[in-house]
Each structure stands twice: as structure tokens, then as C-alpha cells.
Design a protein around this nucleic acid. Sequence first.
DNA 1: GCCGTTTTCGGCCCGACTGTTTTCAGTCG
Length: 598
Amino acid sequence: MSLNAQVADALDQIAALMELTGENRFKVIAHERAARVIRDLSEDVGSMSPEELQSVEGVGEKIARKIVQFREEGRIDELEELRAKVPAGLIEVLQVPGLGPKTVARLWKEAGITSMDELKRALDSGELESLPRMGAKTLQNIREAIAFTETSGERLPIGIALPEAEAIVAHLRSVAGVRKIAYAGSLRRGRDTIGDVDIVCVADPPDPVREAFTTMAGVRKVLASGETKCSVRLAMEGGQVVDGRGAGREVQVDLRIVPASSWGAALLYFTGSRAHNIRLRERALKKRMTLNEYGLYPLDDDPTPPQRRGVRPIASRTEEAIYTKLGLPTYPPEMREDRGELDLREIPPLVEVGDIRAELHAHTIASDGRMTLAELVDAAIERGFHTIAVTDHSKASAQANGLSVERLREHVREIREENARRGRTIEVLAGSEVDILADGRLDYEDEVLAELDIVVASPHSGLSQDPKKATKRLLRVIEHPLVHILGHPTGRLLPNRRGLEPDMHEIVHAAREHGVALEINSHWKRLDLRDTHVRMAVEAGCLIAIDCDVHRPEHFDNLRYGVMTARRGWLTRDHCVNTWTRQKLLQWLRQKRQGASG
DNA sequence: GCCGTTTTCGGCCCGACTGTTTTCAGTCG
């Protein structure tokens, strides 16, 4: 785990334990915020001076000191003191939805509960029933919430959640009275994984959609069903199985019903992120306005919310109107993470799905793909691409039927013939997805690689090696004169395989220097590079390739996930090689070859 | 604990829903 992630975890633990000791909630929030910012930070806190640490938003003198102590001694005094006071097992209990710090502290102090196992035993024995404010319903909700975290605790990959959300939206759109409906939340922001699904809708009258929502197929439990807000737990469809673990799992879905006049405010609010929203509200207050999910209103001293007093909003119908009145550009949802976007005067020209004109990482039946060469090329033409690179696996990927040198050469001949046959319709490039061996050597000799139009080098094994080795390994690849693209650089798999954890600073700077493009692999199980890495690469001025790693025709549809990840990293068209013209792309590919020989 | 184009002190985003209680605390997003 990177140092930033370790520091963030430690700060999160301090925050959680503070909550249980009843510490001032603003102190708790300050630690949570610092943890989030450091987790997202592109600089490495290990190489920052105390002054630099304090220049980070949300990090002041005291938290900076804690970070310094952590990196020098591997511990933080305050965290150790808190751990001595509060049983560590309670942090897990705090993760159960519906159990907040107040309730967990009561369970600890009044019933002696110090861990999840003890809580489960106490629930079974009935000893909690005697506690005040612990009715049968509350206890049953806790039981069900624990079961939910155990079967469905992990976040859902976006590739599972997005189609599910689209199906729900399509279903509800046909209900009488529904005038507008859309999914929001982290799904709309394009995060790689999703905790729950948020849906916003305008419906008049509201009852039919509420009824349809709480009774739709798959609803296991209705958590809330109010005038404007409904929440359910939904069983995932049978087909949506993640690595064999999807079966039986549930996902929480929230529906918010809002007036048509508040559509923009509601969409803005429920899209988040939470941190972005808080920033917007702070900004509104500075401008003597107040922002909530109903609209942007003039600020006054009346404690009753303005929408209940019939106050006319300054803006509310569209997101754009609200941003404009706040003096801000309309941020694409993917940028709304409080990662510096509010300091921008204008939005950079972020890459869009329609900009992608080339797929540079695709497999055929020659290795582990399902399409013949001709079928792959046809599929690429159908997508409107001007270039398709055929990059079957190299020999070390035996499990993927990787090609021996002889088979590769025969394959290259076939690809060149196919390219000639297609004329100007599409450029078919002969390439390889070459395995990166554990020490950073490539799986084919240089003389073989030199015969190819394009080389994508990817790690497939040795993915748990330590960060220093991983960094060296990838640097060696980036410095190799015949490599164009570093494919799925960390090899992570969502939700559980962490993959390599190289020093991404070194990686992106070397990639920039050597003109190697780093790949965003668009498969929703990979999304590798991830968003924060893309942002680092963009800041360093790296080239990026967004590829689908196509094995089947439908894999081209994963492009949207890769593009959302790119946009979350603020990638613009000019630095994305897949958006270039055929001529510019080919020039870049050949230039690397000439640079190597000259 | 952090932060400041009115502030180095005194604020810190805002509303909905549930459960259990009878006016609200706790939790969530």
C-alpha cells in the first residue's frame, strides 16, 4: 500500500475512534477530510516538507505533525492513545449501515460490546432488548444490516452497477406521471466502483412511481418510503455475477422524487460528490446565498428552509444555471470530486467517447480472443474506427494461448494481408501484447519486436511483488525503445486484486520522457490506470491510450468506462492517442521506431 | 482541527426519514 494510503487509513482510524469517544465532531470531520485529500493527493507525502504538507487543503499544523511522525516512526502517538482507550473491534461495528457513533458507543458502554462477534452474540441472546431506545424493530434492522454488509459489503464494479441502473431507470420511466428520471451519484460521476445507486425523478403525481419503485422485481427490503425519498435493497439479477460472488448479493437503491422546478438542484445535489457539494455550499454562503437540493436561494436569517416559505430561487431548474450563478463553469460529473476543480476558470476539453477513433489493444482466436481476424476488423469498422491494432498474447501467457515466435510471424503475415485487402477503409496494425517478465524483460527478443507495427507491453504475472521491484520492472519497459504502450500498468482486478503498486511519479515522468503512452484499460474489471493515476499522468504531460482490450465484440462497449475514468483524470483529447487522426497516430508509432534505430 | 478578499476567533452544509418518544436524536447521503 502506498504511503499516502497508509497515512489516510491512519487518519481515518483516528477519526473513527474519536467519534466513539465523543470528541468534537468538527475535529472528526477535519481528520476525515485530511484523510480523503491525502488519499487523492498526487504528490507522495513521504517526500514533502512539513511546510508543503501544510499547504495541502485540509492539512494544518497538527495533522502535518502526525503525518511526519507516521512516516518517521511508523506510528502516531494520538492513534496509539485512542487505541488504548477504545476497543479496535468497534471500528468494524461502525461500518454497519444504520449504526453510527452514538449507537455504537452505547452498545460498548451499556452492553459491553467490543467487536462484531460480540454484537452478533448479543443480538442472538436477546440481552440487548433491555436497553432503552432499542426496540424490536431497531434490533431487527441491525441484524439485517449486518447480513447485508456480509453478503454485499463490497462496492460494485461500475460495469455491473451501470447496466442495472439503466434497467431500473428504463422501467420507471414508463410509469404514469414520471416526467424526468436519471441516475445520479457515483455512477454518474463514473467512479470505478459504486456503493449504492441513486435515482432522481420528477413525477406528478408521485404515488405511482413510489409504488412501482418499492414493489419492482428483486426488492428484498424497503428501507424507507417517504414523500420524497425511498430506499430499497435489491437482489442482483442472476446474470450479474462478479467473479462468482455476485449471486445472492444485494444493492441499495435510493429514489428521490423532486418538483420539476428543482430538477437541476436535485440532480446536482444527488450527483455529488459530497465533498464537491460542501464546497459549493460554502461558496454560496460567501456570496450571501444558500444551496440545497431544491435550489439556490438568497440568504436570510429565517431558520425555516426557503423552499417551505415560497421564496423564489435564484436558480434551480438546471445544473448549469446554478453553477453560473455561483460564478463557476458547469463541471462534467466526472470532475466533481473536490480535487481542485473549483479553482478552474474553464473546463478543459475532456475526451469523449465519440472522439475515440482507434482501438490499439485487441485479441483474436490466434490467442484467447473469440473473433477471427476478419471479424475483429469488421467490428472495428462498424464502430467507425480508422485503426485497429491486433495484439495477441505473447508466449509467456500460455494460459491465454500466447504465440510462439513462429506463430507470431505467421500471424503478422496474415494481418498484413488483411490490411492490404481492406485498402483505405481501415488501418490494421500488426502488433503484440507482450508479457512483461518479473524482472522487466519482454517476452520476445528485440529483433522480433522490431518487426511489429505496435507493441503493447503488459504485466500479467508477478503482480504481488514489492513496490520497489515493480517500479524498476515498469521503468525498464518504459525505457525500452520498441515499446509504444504500457498496457494495464498495475494489473489490478476489481474488486479485490490490488495489483502492482509502483511509484507512479517515477512511472509517469519516465513515460513522458520516453514518449510511451500509458493505457487506460477500459474493461470494468480493470480500469487500469485508475482515475488518480490518470490525473498524475495528465499533470506530467504523458500520452494516454484508452483501449478496450477486446476479446469479444461486446468488449468495444466497455469504452465508456475507460472514457469516464479518463475524464475523472481530466484527460484532454490532445493527449489521448486514440483520438488522433490516422496519419498522426501512424507517425507517432513509426517515430518511436526511427528514434530507436537512430 | 482547519480556515480567513469583512475574520487569527468563531465559525464549520443541509434536509429527509426512522424509531420510539410525545418533540427529537441519530443516521444517512
